[in-house]
Amino acid sequence: MAPGYAPLSFTPPEPGTYGLPAMGVAGDGQVLDSQGRATNLHDYLGTKPTVLSFIFTTCDDVNGCPLATYVMRSVQDALQADPDTADKARLVSFSFDPVFDTPDVIDAYGSQFRTDNFDWQFLTTSGPESLDPILSAYGQWVIRDYDDNGDYTGTMSHILRVFLIDKNRNIRNIYSTSFLHADTVANDVRSLLMEQ
C-alpha cells in the first residue's frame, strides 16, 4: 500500500519554511463540469491554490486513482477543519476516460467524497479531441487498452500524478504515488496561502 494511506512516517517541514518554485504554467483546455456544462479547465484553476488530480472512476488499482481521491478527501478534511483555509483552496478531480466518465458518472463519483461546503470540482471531457491536448500539456500520458478487434476496452495505464497549482495558475509541485500524502499536500497548500 502506498504511503498516502498510512500516517506520515516523518515530520514534514513547516508551511512557509521552504520554497515551491514554479514549474511552468498549468495547461488549459475544454472540459465538461459535473453538470455537463462546457467550460475551460482554467475556469477551475487560479484565484486560489488548487490541487488537481487525473483519475478515472473505474480505476481499480488501489495505489492509482483511488489513492489520489483518498488523499484529496483527506486534504479536504484537513483544510476544511481550519477556518483560515476552509474556503481558500480548491480540489479538482479530472477524468481522462471520457467514454465511461460522463458528467453524470463523475457527479455521482464526486458525491461520495466532497463535502457540501468545500470547493471540490469533478470534471471530464467530451472526447479524446478535448482530452488529449490537456493530457499532453500536463505530461500525463496514458496507454489505452484495445481488444483484438481494435475496440477500446475501457481500461488504461498511466503514471499517477497530482499537481499543486497556485492562484496564478503556475504548477508549484507534482506528486506521484510515493510522494502523495495528505499532510504534505495540505502543508504545501498552506505554504502557498502564506505567500498571499
Partner: peptide, 13 residues
Amino acid sequence: ISSVVAALLLVQP
C-alpha cells in the same frame, strides 16, 4: 501486457 498495465497503474516507483 495486462500485467504491464497493472504495473504502470501502480505507478510506484
